[in-house]
Every structure is written in C-alpha cells, then in structure tokens.
Design a binder for these strands. Sequence first.
RNA 1: GUGGGUGUAGCUCAGGUGGUAGAGCCCUGGAUUGUGAUUCCAGUGGUCGUGGGUUCAAGUCCCAUCACCCACCCCA
Length: 428
Amino acid sequence: MAKQIQSIRGMHDILPDESGQWFWLESRARLILERYGYREIRTPIVEKTELFKRSIGEVTDIVEKEMYTFEDRNGDSLSLRPEGTASCVRAGIQHGLFHNQQQRLWYQGPMFRHERPQKGRYRQFQQIGVETFGFAGPEIEAELIALSKRLWDELGIDDVTLELNTLGTPESRRAYREVLVAFYEANRDQLDEDSLRRLDGNPLRILDSKNPQMQALNEGAPSLHDHLDDESKAHFEMLCRLLDDIGIDYRLNLRLVRGLDYYSHTVFEWTTTSLGAQGTVCAGGRYDGLVTQLGGRPTPAAGFAMGVERLLELIRVRQGEQGAYRPDAYLLLAGEAAQQAGFALAERLRGDLPALKLQVNIGGGSFKAQMKRADKSGADVALIVGDDELAAGHVTVKPLRDRDAAQQTVPYDSVRAILEARGETRDD
RNA sequence: GUGGGUGUAGCUCAGGUGGUAGAGCCCUGGAUUGUGAUUCCAGUGGUCGUGGGUUCAAGUCCCAUCACCCACCCCA
C-alpha cells in the first residue's frame, strides 16, 4: 500500500455527519443578516501580503508569525487571508462602494492562521463577518450587537456574555498609551516576560494579562476611561443607552483592548466559559481609521466577526444534532427485473415529484439488507418495487417511522397523492 | 513558539512487571424464498500513528518523527 497522505495540521475535513449542522447555522445567520439589510460580499482568499501588513499592523502576532505567506510565480508576496476585514475594505475602496454611501456587508469563508492548534483554534477556520461603512454614530454599533444577540437567540445559544469597552478616539488612545507606557516603565522590575515583550508592541494588552502578579500591578495602572475626551465619552454613553433600551446586558471590561491595531472607540466581545481557553465566540468594534489607512477617503466603519467552529461547538454542547440530512423516501428494488427497471423508475419519480428527496437502492442486496439500508438512511417511507409490483405497474409504500400506519400497494399514479398527503414532497 | 497528555479494527475502547492482539458498535450472511428499527448465531475487518534502536522475543522498553488533545502565547 502506498503511503497515506493526511490533511494539513490544524485543517480539518467537515464530514457528512457534521455538514448538516454547518448548513443549518449558515442559513440561519444569512436569514438574520438579510432581516437587518445586510448584503453578502465575496472576496478572494489570497491577497497581497502588503494589505494585511497595512491593516492588521506590522508588529502584530498575526502578521509577524501566523500568516501563510508565499511568493507568487512572478515574485509578488501573497498571503492567505488571516481575517476578512482587510479584504472587505480593499474591495470597497477598489469598487467605490464607500463613495458617499452607506454599506451593510457580510461575508463568510475560511481564514488561515499558522497557530498551534487547540480546541476552538484551527489553522483553517471559518468566520462569518459583518462590516458596515458610512455610519459614524453609535447606533450602528448597537445594531451590530443587537444583530449578533438575535443570532444567539435563534441558534439557542444562551451562555454567552457581552463584554464592552471603548478605546476612544485614536488621539485619546494614543495619549493614554503614553501614560500607560510611562507607568509600566516605572514598574519595569515587576513585569513578567510576556509583558516586557508587549511593552514595545502592544502595551494595552498587558492590561489583559492572565498572570495574577500582573493583574495585581494592573490594579494600580492608570485607567483609559480617565483619559477619554468628551467626544469619546459621549459616543460610548450613547451606545450604552441604546443597549439598555433594547434590554441587552453587558459587562464593562476595561481590559478589553483587542489585538488588532485598527480599532477605535467601541470594542466588544461575546465570550463563553464553556469552551475552555478559547472563550471568544464573536468580537468586533469600530475602526474608523482603516479605510484611509488603506488608501480610501475617510469613512467611518464598524464590524465584527464570529468563529463558526466555536459557535458550532457551543451548539453541540447545548443541543443535539441540527439539520442532519435525510431523504424522504428510499426505493427498494427486489428481484432482477425490478433492479433494472428501478433505475428508470427513480428518475421518473424525481421528474414527477421535484421536491421529493429520493434515494434509490443501488448494488442489490437481499430484501432484508435493503430494508436495513432504508431504515438507516433515515427515510420516512420505503418505496418497494419487486417483480410483482413491476409487472402490475404498482409501488408499495411502507411508512417506516410510525408503527400504526400500514403499507399499501398502489398504482404508480397514486404514489404522488400518498406522498403528498404524508408531507414528503414539501420543500425543507 | 513553550510546557504537559494521548495515538491499538471504520467508530468507542481493553490489553500488570516484554512471550507474538481482544470486546462492543458498524458492516456482511443466516435463524425468517419480499419486510427494517428488538433478539439469537456466524463471519469480514489490524504492517498496534510512522521510522529507527535494545532484545532470542516489542502493542509493551529507548530515541526520533507525525498527528490529535489541554494549557501558555495569540485570537474568532
């Protein structure tokens, strides 16, 4: 036997048993997004590396050590996208979507990050992202949060908490950053290894350290909220009021600073405690500066992304299977003549009953074996055609799921009525 | 990138201190010449993750490597 080839580390197959759940979640998300007026955008999964360097930030972990970067045949540096916002903004600028316009967009697809795989963290993972452009007020952030909340309700997810914070305007954030760095420099001897590393790159992240000693030090650190300008405060207060109005609870988390460079004002995160260390299920915020950073005209922007694998994991924990595929009917073919004629019969049925999901037995097998397959397929009814039925132009319809219902042998033309009465031909 | 754990049949897992591999489920057939989901019987299926090494002998011990899981880091 030849040597087996395995899938790439951290990149997983979604097998038929799970794909139904994916489809179920995706359709629900799409429906809700459409209810809020969002339209889908699809962008390539490969972009110029430069795009991610300029948007995510050159000194972030994502860009520095997690991107799948390679040279194209003509020498360009390309990267598999590690997230969706950059592409979305790039496409919007390129096609003039932001030219004095408001846009509510969403996308869905695989993202790639070369991290050490873990529960809820994979090298290829699926995100559903939502991005809005041209909305400067806090109403849009409230809408984004309301939309995500509605999705949790729809999916039956109830153990997530909304964490909320503001970084203020870029100016106030920058000013605060200086104050904070000065504070940590003064206490340099107390910083752990990670924090020393962050001090240069992303000092705000030190606030979010899990190290108890750091947390103790952070108690005394200057607070971002003391350094917010009036505009930043007003924006945030308005958002909180809007959320209060629709009864969405949130927890103010001053340590929530987000890892990506481009955020300003609102940042939020939906977290759960039932997924181990990877507790963030959905995160986003406002990123007004990004469009100009990528060469567009000043355009207010806000959005979020959710990790589909993490959401599915949550749903799996809370409910059973959702959206598993099962045919409506399974066609048994008993006897040689029926086996041959049955193939054409199945096609005829599919032509006459377009909404019927019909699986036909292929590969023969004893009657018993075919019945077993019919049962295992999950079909609601078995359609039986043996040599007897074939000769008479009949089909036997046998309900498989309810004990009381009797099977009946009827002319082909009556099959439709029976299946329709049973609801097998409904679209679902 | 760092630390810890685990890899035995398609799946879930047994296999004290080395002696040449087992169960349940699944699948196939039969008990029931055309009636499944319950029962009973039988059968198929393994280079024990991979590659080296120690040994008369390795699933078991040693080394390397790959993958998965968990935590750190990072993030959705």
